[in-house]
Nucleic acid binder design. Sequence first.
DNA 1: TACGATCGTCAACGTGGTTGACGAAATAGT
DNA 2: ACTATTTCGTCAACCACGTTGACGATCGTA
Lengths: 158, 158
Amino acid sequence: MATADPDRPGFLLPLLLLAGFRTLIDDLHAELARQGHSDLRPLHGFVLQAVGPDGTTASELGQRLGVSKQAAGKTVDRLVALGYLERADDPRDARRKLVRMTERGYDGLRRSAVIFDQLRDRWAATLGPERVAAIEDDLRAVTPANWFRLDVPGWFGA
Amino acid sequence: MATADPDRPGFLLPLLLLAGFRTLIDDLHAELARQGHSDLRPLHGFVLQAVGPDGTTASELGQRLGVSKQAAGKTVDRLVALGYLERADDPRDARRKLVRMTERGYDGLRRSAVIFDQLRDRWAATLGPERVAAIEDDLRAVTPANWFRLDVPGWFGA
DNA sequence: TACGATCGTCAACGTGGTTGACGAAATAGT
DNA sequence: ACTATTTCGTCAACCACGTTGACGATCGTA
């Protein structure tokens, strides 16, 4: 059974994962603020990513993010107020309201992608590229696949 | 400069770190609920850890957790209401209110430590112990040291 | 056509955080 | 010994993000 190593107690693992995540997110937003996006909050990047290049609706956005449609709607409200998203009527279904990125939304998302790549390079410079890749592979292996619903292939690089 | 690998875009790294963290936390709380601690929220484990065996005050707790003393005070209020913490007067300083763990608080923290160790073993069974250790070492290397103010040596194993 | 499912929204609420103010108590300085 | 400053806890107002429940409008279907 559990042969806990006293030198490496299990509670350090979540703490280190959180630390790594928060470090990247904090560095990202410090740089984003420097580039004119000081009003983007940590959550917003995930939301923009989930909206994607084709847009969605609030209900679908909620499903992608794993929250209620009401919560998704309120987050869209804020991002509309900040100028990152816009709403439009769906001509084929009067109930639906399309949610699309504005040019500012695209800009924030593009810059986030570039900055994240640079931060990953910084980790690679410290650890070596193969160890960064190993972290990614290992975490993929122990993490449920539904954590990656945000993947929008072919969207980021450009 | 940034030689981004299109197969491993940088934004996957924070997503995977978050996924790993949330997976561990979700599994922890599912098991804690099974063991009679369904009212413990993800934050509470960090707070109990930061209170430690000797107790603290709300102000000091806020510093340890990196939040304001008011936020720390409100969280203590909730944990007192749930029976995990208790307040006591400091005989040497009438301004201070000592915050201590109750027996229920100790129980929740002990169980969390055991469960975390088991979850780490589960990762080790999938990845191999040396790769789990490598993740921890790597994350330590790229993460500011002040992320580990919660370390209370010698407290957990027992 | 009538019914049930779906979409967006409103309302009320919970949790975790912020800043500002303020009285009470400890401490430093003269 | 008496001020002046600092510190501690708390109150109040507010913000961000989430929940559940309800409800009118609209769509698809029996």
